[in-house]
Structure formats: structure tokens, C-alpha cells
Design a protein around this nucleic acid. Structure first.
Length: 271
DNA sequence: CTGAGATCCTGGGGGC
DNA sequence: TGCCCCCAGGATCTCA
């Protein structure tokens, strides 16, 4: 499932591939995937517009257009954004939306499970107003994170997954950061000591940064904008590693369910 | 505030 | 081998 490092990798690839290009035609083969403001026809509205800037906000890819409008893409679990050059004739499997540029480049949104969305927003739409802090931004300081946990009785892993608190952390990196910090995923957030909170803050930033360097984690469906897998799955300590030895203490990794999500962790060194 | 359950989907894994 | 059943999972909403 694409989380911050995967979305960052995709956005960087897209920025390289389509910035400055002009949309010629748009094809939508599954209506619910492409969302536009009431009364705005998605395909016709985009034709003729130009990609000004590609970026990322949380788990969203953002595509700013020259007219001031913006496309925001959420890939959910199995969504993909794939760039194909003018030479490609074959449509990518499970493609639901295609932006065809005037130079022949195509940007396809594909999604087996159809949970992802590509939304067209009017200029100035405050679409991310309730989004949480970017964990790799200057604003996400150790002290800010320490105080975020004050009084929060929710379990720390559920807190990390709350996109309105911290934007971009999903199941993989929540599990990995908690392991790196040595914190049990079910700990109520407010019971975690200040030093442990600081360790967790560092672990979140560390695991996200290392994964971006590896171009993301491909444990299931994730590929980047060129269709290539990432490399961070080879560095995972606990995620998906049921029964394998903990890299730190050797105890077998366990899987429990927390907040209706699979959770991998080590009973030996996560307290 | 907090958590549980339902919803959306389909490939694929488990069980027989 | 083949088939059926059921589950995973991010965001969002409802309900307790």
C-alpha cells in the first residue's frame, strides 16, 4: 500500500515525466474513480490545461495545473500512476483514467480494487485543511511530537495512522518505527515516556527517510511511475515477517490485530 | 474522546 | 487439480 515514501517516489517520477506538458485528451472508463466539482465535466475540463507542478501531501499526489486548479490522487491500497511514453500502445492493466498529453506521453491511473480516486479541485480549494503535520517537515520537531501525545489515551499505533495528526504514515512505517523505537504498538500514547517519545519521533523520520532513499517498499502491489518496484522491503525489520527472528533480540516476530489492522512486532524488545 | 463495525473491491490464499 | 469461501486494507461514516 502506498504510504509517504511510495507516494513521494511516484510524485518525483511524475514531476520529471510530465511537468510542463499539456493535456490533449482525457479518457475515463470508470466514472466513480474520477471526481470533479458538481457540474464540472472531468474530461472536458482538463483538456488544454498544462501541468505546472507535481508534489505530495501526506499520501496524496498533487498535480497543480496552469489554470490554478489541482488534481489530487489517492492510491489507497492498489492504485498506480503510470507514465508511458509515446511508443507504448498497450494500455496498462486495470486502467480507469488516462491523461494523454500533446507529445504522446500518457499518464494512467490504474487500480485493481477501485478504491483510489483522482479528484479535480477548483483553484483555492482548501482540500487538505484537516491534514496532519508532514513528518519530514521542519515543523515536525521532537518537542512538537512529544506534546502531541499528551493526554491521548488511544493506542500509539492507531495514533500514528491518524492522517489528521501526522500525514503519510501507514501500516508499514507505523510498525517499523515502533519497532525501531522499542515501543509496544498497543501502548496508550500518553503512557509513553518523554525519552521514548523522542526515540519514536526520530524513528519515524529515520524509517521514512531511508525508505525514500530506497524508492519505497514493494511488499504487495506498489510500483513507481515507471512501473518499477522499490527496495525497502529488503530492510523491513518486522512488517510481514511473522515468525522470523527479531533483528535486535532474536525473538520471533508476532502478528496481532490492532484497530482492525495487522500489526507486526517483537514481544522481546518492544515494551 | 475512543473504539468497534460496516463499507467499498477483487486477487489470491487457505482449506478440502 | 479444482473450487469455494473469505480475507486484507485506507479512509470515512455510523453507532455505542
Amino acid at each position: 500500500m502506498p504510504e509517504l515514501p511510495e507516494v513521494e517516489t511516484i510524485a518525483r517520477g511524475l514531476a520529471h515525466a510530465v511537468t510542463g506538458k499539456t493535456i490533449e485528451t482525457v479518457t475515463v472508463s470508470m466514472r466513480k474513480i474520477a471526481v470533479a466539482p458538481d457540474g464540472v465535466p472531468f474530461e472536458a475540463a482538463l483538456a488544454g490545461d498544462t501541468v505546472a507542478l507535481v508534489g505530495r501531501r501526506g499520501k496524496y499526489v498533487t498535480i497543480d495545473l496552469a489554470t490554478g486548479r489541482r488534481l489530487v490522487v489517492h492510491l489507497r491500497m492498489t492504485g498506480r500512476l503510470i507514465v508511458q511514453g509515446a511508443g507504448y500502445a498497450e494500455p496498462y492493466p486495470y486502467t480507469h483514467v488516462v491523461l494523454a498529453f500533446t507529445d504522446g506521453t500518457r499518464l494512467s491511473f490504474a487500480d485493481v480494487r477501485q478504491f483510489g480516486r483522482i479528484r479535480l479541485l477548483a483553484a483555492g480549494d482548501p482540500w487538505d485543511a484537516d491534514g496532519g503535520v508532514e513528518p519530514l517537515s521542519e515543523g515536525f520537531t521532537s518537542e512538537a511530537f512529544v506534546s502531541m501525545l499528551d493526554g491521548r489515551r488511544t493506542r500509539i499505533k492507531a495514533f500514528l495512522l491518524d492522517q489528521s495528526r501526522i500525514a503519510g504514515v501507514g501500516n508499514i512505517y507505523a510498525c517499523e518505527a515502533l519497532w525501531e523505537a522499542g515501543i509496544r504498538p498497543s501502548r496508550p500514547a500518553h503512557t509513553i515516556s518523554k525519552p521514548a517519545r523522542r526515540r519514536l519521533h526520530g524513528a519515524i523520520r529515520n524509517v521514512l527517510t531511508r525508505s525514500i532513499e530506497a524508492r519505497g517498499t514493494s511488499v504487495d502491489d506498489y510500483v513507481d511511475a515507471e512501473g518499477l518496484k522499490g527496495g525497502f522491503q529488503n530492510q523491513l525489520a518486522v512488517y510481514g515477517r511473522l515468525g522470523e527472528p527479531c533483528p535486535r533480540c532474536g525473538r520471533p516476530i508476532v502478528r496481532t490485530v490492532l484497530g482492525q489492522r495487522g500489526t507486526w512486532w517483537c514481544r522481546g524488545c518492544q515494551k
